[in-house]
Design a protein around this nucleic acid. Structure first.
Lengths: 250, 250
DNA sequence: CGTATCTTATTGTCCGACAATCCGACAAGC
DNA sequence: GCTTGTCGGATTGTCGGACAATAAGATACG
């Protein structure tokens, strides 16, 4: 019958107040935040309380500090931060390899098409460069996987669509471990990826959206075959293939 | 030439330590965290320091508390939390209406196809129910928009793909404001949405993935026409259409 | 066995303190 | 003039202790 009447601790209200001003662009990126003592004075709370609020915003990516700096500045969440959070969440939700693949399949053709339509000269060059880098790579699975991710990333950038760029990040992050296994175990994987990338680059160069989309679809479909050949069960949870590469902090 | 030698404050290391244990599933969902005092004892830091660490994890969605509860429990980031963070980030990155629409166009057909392939009986029913709810709605733009979002959401759920579900949330969130304008200003919008939903439901019922995908593509394309008819410039930044509905906390 | 009551533990908030160090300014030297 | 050394002040990171409010658990009671 009645809603529970909301109570919010002070640190929450402080952080919301600051967040609201950032979203309303009253505090703009790059601007330094007032000092903790000053904030405490203005909000009329203790500095400890302010600090708790700041930690929340800091981990949300809305506040950050310059390298080795002391003061906090207003920032935008970086792609990496967002990607980290999201992929972490997806791991905890038990996302499987097949889920990630399916997302890749759904999203990438659209991105490739958009990139082909709207590519700039520099965008195209970035895409081509990452394809070349992959082609030139020998051994070094880690780096090769990073190259593949960079290729997708470059397409996202070239599409000029921030939504694509941000959505790409977590997907690629989750893809990497299993892709590493494929490249490691499937001999023909590299050449197949290489040629698919070539086709996509060509299509983007010609601003031929349907062709870019089509080749990307094939490219992604190939990954699925890669999983089968590499013997990775599609229902493996992402994160299971990770070999405890979390830097354990104690 | 040299890497900056990293230094990490204690609150950061504490939060990382706890986060690592959660990701490693040594701390599982639902489990209560030790009390702040106990954590301070174990880490050999002050309680204030522990509290700062906890705030970070709390806003990451890894810790939460039961309604009106006092103690912290290990939780998984909810879809809403993730969606909130991501859509907030996208707003700050200046994502435009057209970007969101494009993402919708890229993702939804794939989701619809996956849903059609793997739908369960209850999943189908949820989809159909949200379509019925939208059809029955009169006036109440707000609620109608929520119904449309619920329809997409139900499809995501039915796909059984956690990645889809999580990626959907921020997109829908950003879509809502502009969709509200469309429904408000374009007379035929409701009937068009209604009939598209009908087709999609039917295709999902028949487990006809291509048809579901195709109708979804049309459905989304229709939105674009909606923007034009409603007179919403595609380059409008999402968030600009928001009428200061942020609960201003002071 | 369920319910009211009492205790205790725990969180939210405050205060004050201090070391480390970042910042800016200013002086010195090539 | 530009780099390097010096210095004082400002700011953050961390600590210890304190206390009110209240959630959680235990206990007595009907």
């Amino acid at each position: 019958m009645f809603e529970p009447l909301g109570y919010a601790p002070a640190y929450w209200r402080v952080s919301e107040a600051i967040r609201a001003r950032i979203l309303r662009r009253e505090l703009v990126e790059g601007e330094p935040l007032p000092t903790e003592t000053e904030l405490a004075r203005q909000f009329e709370v203790n500095r400890s309380t302010v600090r708790e609020a700041l930690r929340k915003l800091e981990s949300n990516g809305l506040l950050g500090r310059r390298r080795g700096g002391k003061r906090l500045y207003v920032t935008r969440p970086t792609r990496e931060a967002i990607g980290g959070d999201l992929s972490q969440a997806l791991e905890l939700h038990g996302a499987r390899v097949v889920d990630v693949w399916e997302a890749l399949q759904a999203v990438q053709p659209g991105i490739a098409a958009a990139a082909a339509e709207r590519r700039s000269e520099t965008g195209l060059e970035a895409i081509a460069a990452s394809a070349r880098r992959f082609a030139a790579r020998e051994g070094e699975q880690e780096a090769a996987v990073a190259d593949v991710a960079a290729f997708f990333d470059a397409l996202g950038e070239a599409s000029g669509n921030h939504v694509f760029v941000l959505l790409n990040e977590p997907i690629l992050r989750l893809l990497k471990p299993s892709l590493a296994v494929i490249i490691d175990r499937v001999p023909q994987a590299r050449s197949r990826i290489e040629s698919a990338q070539k086709q996509i680059v060509a299509a983007v160069r010609d601003q031929d959206a349907p062709r870019a989309s089509e080749w990307m679809a094939r490219h992604v479909r190939d990954f699925r075959r890669g999983y089968e050949v590499a013997g990775i069960p599609l229902s493996t949870e992402v994160g299971e293939t990770l070999d405890a590469d979390l830097s354990s902090v104690s």
